[in-house]
């Protein structure tokens, strides 16, 4: 397990840069750190909306939403999600929101 330091905070992350303790360790500094490594120029309300929805969904359901559900609830087509998060909803948005790493046959 590695650690990342950003703006005076320390985070425990796995090799892929996902928070090992998930939302427990999540903070504004984390958002700022992920922004710096995931090709995001400026954090907008649209980014915030996606993060909030991901976190709410995860708290309620214990899993990340399917891409289709994320699109429906945010109202953003997948294309827009990639414009906001160049690595996509999994590697980009879920990482920033502090959700666990996507698994399965990826």
């Amino acid at each position: 397990m590695a650690t990342v330091e950003h703006k005076g905070k320390t985070f425990n992350v796995d090799e892929d840069g996902f928070l090992t303790k998930g939302m427990e360790e999540w903070s504004e500094e984390w958002v700022d750190y992920v922004k710096s490594i995931e090709g995001i120029e400026e954090l907008t309300d649209e980014h915030r909306k996606i993060i909030d929805i991901l976190q709410d969904y995860f708290k309620k359901n214990g899993i990340a939403p399917m891409v289709r559900i994320l699109s429906k609830t945010t109202g953003f087509p997948l294309k827009r999600i990639y414009e906001l998060f160049p690595s996509g909803p999994g590697k980009g948005a879920c990482k920033m929101a502090g959700l666990p790493k996507p698994t399965g046959c990826v």
Partner: peptide, 13 residues
């Protein structure tokens, strides 16, 4: 190890 999430910008796979 289990899994691994890496990629290039613009693509999800």
């Amino acid at each position: 190890k289990h899994g691994g999430i890496v990629g290039v910008f613009g693509y999800g796979g």
